[in-house]
């Protein structure tokens, strides 16, 4: 059972960092960015590129996050602003296209084999019967720290107030003299930066491949939707709940129900998020902590 706990903490942290960014963009722009998870992949690869150029892991990671954050603002200004003018449907198709373009470019540059970051081999620590590596402990601590920091920034700073104002009512924020363009820029930098952190942490823990982001797409969207669109706390709680559900479903011996010993194939892991999503939509369409869902 401790295994489930460790698994939940690690995977939940990765999903939470991404789901929070997705929900922030959704809150401020009313648009679901399918390409969001690709920022995680880009983060992983920029760390690979920078460590390959001879920089240390920590410096490469920090620079990688900064690079991805800047790239996100550039993409928003050049691409998404234009797509959004043609309506949310075109923007959604466009974000899918961008995701494909990013993945294809990375495949062209790095091939489809996974890349590894130069991290020292670590011995797992026995934690009440479950193995956990020091880098996994760091992963969870960094994620939780960043999520707490984000919550503090949104709650107590003037920037946070501005972000929340734009999310609550863009027109009202405009007429009260807020610089909406600047707020949106910062939201893009923040959420892409968090996504890049998540991608780098995941690459340190295992490896980075072109599918890194895409494999997280469904759980991340499930967490953001289940948490309630635009709700940061909801997204975080849903992310860990989802990771826990995934882990439990694979651990439980379903033999008690179908007879014999029967474990679900690991390949079905992504299906858990989907099932959770459908149950949630059927019984509580506004999400854990969300307001009523926009229909249309």
């Amino acid at each position: 059972m401790v295994e489930v706990l460790v698994d939940t903490a690690v995977r939940g942290s990765i999903i939470a960092l991404l789901a929070v960014g997705l929900t922030l963009i959704q809150g401020t722009l009313r648009f679901a960015n399918v390409a969001h998870v690709e920022f995680a992949t880009l983060g992983g690869y920029s760390a690979v590129a920078l460590t390959g150029a001879g920089l240390g892991l920590l410096l490469s990671s920090a620079l990688g996050v900064a690079l991805v954050a800047v790239l996100a603002v550039v993409l928003y200004r050049l691409l998404f602003r234009r797509l959004l003018r043609s309506g949310p449907m075109i923007a959604l198709i466009g974000s899918l296209a961008l995701a494909i373009v990013i993945r294809a470019t990375l495949q062209l540059l790095y091939g489809s084999r996974p890349r590894y970051l130069p991290t020292p081999l670590e011995r797992g620590i026995d934690f009440h019967g479950a193995l956990i590596t020091p880098s996994q402990i760091r992963l969870v601590c960094i994620s939780l720290g960043l999520l707490a920091l984000l919550a503090l920034v949104l709650k107590f700073t003037s920037l946070g107030r501005a972000v929340r104002a734009v999310a609550a009512n863009p027109e009202l924020a405009d007429v009260s003299g807020l610089n909406r363009g600047r707020v949106v820029d910062i939201v893009w930098m923040l959420s892409a930066g968090l996504a890049a952190v998540s991608g780098i942490l995941l690459s340190i823990d295992s490896a980075v491949g072109i599918e890194l982001g895409f494999n997280l797409l469904l759980p991340v969207f499930a967490a953001a939707i289940v948490g309630g669109l635009g709700s940061i706390a909801g997204a975080v709680i849903a992310a860990y709940a989802l990771a826990c559900a995934e882990s439990l479903v694979l651990q439980i011996d379903w033999g008690a129900i179908v007879g014999g010993t029967h474990h679900l194939e690991v390949g079905y892991r992504p299906a858990v998020g989907f099932a959770l999503l459908v149950v949630m939509l059927a019984f509580r369409p506004q999400g854990l902590m969300g307001r009523a869902v926009r229909r249309g």
């Binding site: 648009f31 679901a32 399918v34 949310p88 449907m89 959604l92 469904l218 969207f221 939707i225 669109l229 939509l281 059927a282 369409p285 869902v293 926009r294 229909r295 249309g296």
Partner: peptide, 9 residues
């Protein structure tokens, strides 16, 4: 019951 962009997902 689903907003159109989330239906797409």
């Amino acid at each position: 019951t689903l907003a159109s962009d989330y239906w797409a997902i």
